[in-house]
Each structure stands twice: as structure tokens, then as C-alpha cells.
Computed example of a mutant assay.
Amino acid sequence: MLKRVEKPKTLKETALEQLRMAIVIGQLAPGERLVERKIGEQLGVSRTVVRECIRHLESEHLVTISSSGPLVTVLESDEIRQIYELRSMLECEAVRHCAKQATTEIIETLQGYLNQIKTKLNEGDVAKALSHTRLFYECIFVTAGMTVAWELVDRLNGRIGRLRFKTLSTKGRVVKGPNNLQEIIDNIAKGNGEAAVKACQKHIDEAYEVGIHLH
């Protein structure tokens, strides 16, 4: 059986991923000015590529263009509240439908992602844990048949990732976060949509309480 050949990433795509992650994990701090020349030298790409990446990140609301140039966007409290409220509406509905559709293979896939999340958190590699968290939720949304909703969530993932990185970097969430995800999986496996929704809501509520206090 032949495997699908993955399309190689372009220079811009690779640079964009690195620049986005630097913002998500706080290497580039909120309010920090983005100097094209300096970033280009660090990434080994032209200023043109950096400029294109910055424009893309502006569309994701990770970068703000000011009179002094591009800056890392500062998330305001009200914006954080809205993001968590949107997560609650979409993710809870996704786990509800996922519980109706999930097969044994899907449950194993979700468990595999969660195992990777736990491993990376225990290793202190929060960035990798975030990557597996994105795959975890994508699997839930796709299984639920909510691909349009996933597109909306995925567009928010840069800002969601910034909040997740902060919360997952705290001692308590390293244990509580994965435990909540395990509860979601267990209830999806039982086909218990309502219990899965309750577990999802608890997970988001706890993350919000931590995130808003860290803001």
C-alpha cells in the first residue's frame, strides 16, 4: 500500500510556523516590536519573506500594525473572555456529536494524542504538547462532522495557543488539563455525550480561571 507523499513546506511556511510559535510561547513578548531585519537574520530568510509572514500573522490577530511598526498583539481581558466563550460553545457541541460517531479507532487515536500530550508536558516541552492538543481537537471536530466549526477554531488557534501555553506552563494544569481530556475521551468512548459535554465545560472553565488570572 503506497502512502501519500506529503507536500514539502515552502520557506515561507517554515518561517511562518517558527514566527507564530515564537509568539505563542512568549519568546516574542506581547507588545514587543517585530524588527524585520533582525527576524530575517535569525530565521535566515529575506525581509520580503518576513514581511509576508507578519501580514499573515496580522490576519490571525497575533500581530498588530502600529505607527511604530508591527508589534506582538496584546490580548485584552474581554478578548480572552470571548475566546473562551466561543471555545465553550463549539468544543462542547463537538464532543457531544463525537460521542455519537466515534469508533474504536477514533478513541485509540484520541488516546494516542493524549498520551503524547502527557509525555511532552512531563518533558517540559509545552510547544510540542500544544501541537498534539491541536490534533486532538481536530480529530474530535472532524469525527463530529463539524469541519466548518473547526475552520473557525483553527483560525483562533494562534490566540488559543497563547492562552494554552500560559495555562499549561503552570504546575496544576500539567496534571488537571490531561486528566480533564481523559474524562472527555472516556465519556466519548461510552457514547455518553452529555457527560462528555460536562467534562469539556469543566476543562474550559478551569482553563479560563487560570488564564484570566495569569493575564
Score class of each variant (00 low, 15 high):
93 E>R: 14
74 V>R: 15
105 E>C: 01
112 G>T: 09
181 L>K: 10
130 L>C: 07
25 I>K: 14
52 E>L: 13
111 Q>Y: 08
29 A>K: 15
102 A>Q: 08
52 E>C: 05
59 S>R: 15
123 E>N: 14
178 P>A: 06
99 A>S: 15
10 T>A: 07
74 V>C: 12
2 L>D: 11
43 L>A: 04
71 L>D: 04
38 K>D: 13
173 R>C: 03
20 R>L: 13
156 L>I: 00
103 T>V: 05
207 A>R: 00
163 L>D: 02
64 T>Q: 12
72 V>T: 09
141 F>Y: 04
57 L>P: 06
71 L>W: 03
159 R>I: 04
132 H>W: 13
4 R>I: 14
2 L>K: 14
151 E>K: 05
95 V>L: 05
82 Q>M: 14
168 L>G: 03
94 A>C: 03
193 G>H: 09
100 K>Q: 15
54 I>R: 08
129 A>V: 11
154 D>N: 15
211 G>I: 03
21 M>N: 11
79 E>D: 09
38 K>W: 05
145 G>Y: 05
192 N>Q: 09
22 A>R: 12
74 V>A: 12
197 V>H: 02
16 L>G: 06
145 G>A: 06
5 V>M: 13
90 L>W: 00
85 E>K: 14
16 L>A: 07
43 L>M: 05
38 K>A: 14
212 I>T: 05
77 S>W: 09
112 G>V: 08
116 Q>G: 09
211 G>H: 01
215 H>C: 12
91 E>C: 00
34 L>P: 01
144 A>Y: 03
115 N>P: 02
157 N>H: 08
196 A>G: 07
163 L>T: 03
108 E>C: 08
4 R>N: 10
17 E>M: 10
184 I>T: 05
89 M>W: 10
